[in-house]
Nucleic acid binder design. Sequence first.
DNA 1: TTCAAAATCACTCAAAAGGGTGAGCTTAAA
DNA 2: TTTAAGCTCACCCTTTTGAGTGATTTTGAA
Lengths: 155, 155
Amino acid sequence: MASGFISRNKQNIIYGLSLALLLLILKWLEWHFVVIQHSFEIYAGTIALLFTILGVWLATKLISRKEKTVVVEKAVYPDSSFILNKTELNRLRISSRELEVLQLMASGLSNQQIAEKLFVSLNTIKTHSSNLFLKLEVERRTQAVEKGKRLCLIP
Amino acid sequence: MASGFISRNKQNIIYGLSLALLLLILKWLEWHFVVIQHSFEIYAGTIALLFTILGVWLATKLISRKEKTVVVEKAVYPDSSFILNKTELNRLRISSRELEVLQLMASGLSNQQIAEKLFVSLNTIKTHSSNLFLKLEVERRTQAVEKGKRLCLIP
DNA sequence: TTCAAAATCACTCAAAAGGGTGAGCTTAAA
DNA sequence: TTTAAGCTCACCCTTTTGAGTGATTTTGAA
């Protein structure tokens, strides 16, 4: 209860205490001012300095609570309309069956699932994908998908 | 060159000007003090208040907020903006490190290559990717990439 | 201070993926 | 008819990936 209140209002309490401390310093300086009677500028300057520091300190304490934000810049998907790059397709000599496999690959299917979907054996899909990787000059299906999208072979 | 100097030292210049302004106010208050001869506490309080505000303002201006920045570079798809779906990211409880791994996955890197790029062990990447698959409810990296793009977690 | 999440790493085991080779079968072009 | 390309499939072998478990350290927030 009490400790919860303290922890919740820690900032405010610290601020209050600091203020009190500063006022004490102020009083002490005031006394000096009365005694010495000449150091008005010093007195004012000290107050200014102290409270500037207080302000900075206070602000840093309050601001450091800021949320961690994730900022991502840049670009993708102008979207909606996809135009197959037939030129590139011909240039790389990618057959229709290979393109089909690439599309299913991009949708996240395993070779086994692709084989079932196309009613052929797993080995056939392996052959297709191997040839595909050769033609696309990649080594992994994720690379193939990435390059396929980049070259507008798949949406 | 002159403008460059100004823009580079804007903060300092603003601070200097503010200080000058405050000193003017100080002088004005001092004059009042001399005239009225009774408002010492008000004078000191005003100085304290003004400089506290100055300090707070200064700190907010100067202190750079702690931000975690994840920059995704994809020169391939120019001229369109990608907006990270932070809502989905939070909903699925995907951590920043996991997102990082997903991005590298999408670019076609193997776990080993990702590990080298992030200077951690292969096992660590495996753990990250496993957790990622659980959170994305997928079983393969190609599916993860596909779903990541669909949910706007990666470009 | 305490607690939970995140990040790190290790280990095992099984499944999936990939490289390489060879080989039928079909179809379209030379 | 010969030839080339595409599609199909098999086998072997290695690497990669993924699941499951457990552990330590770091970090951030209450």
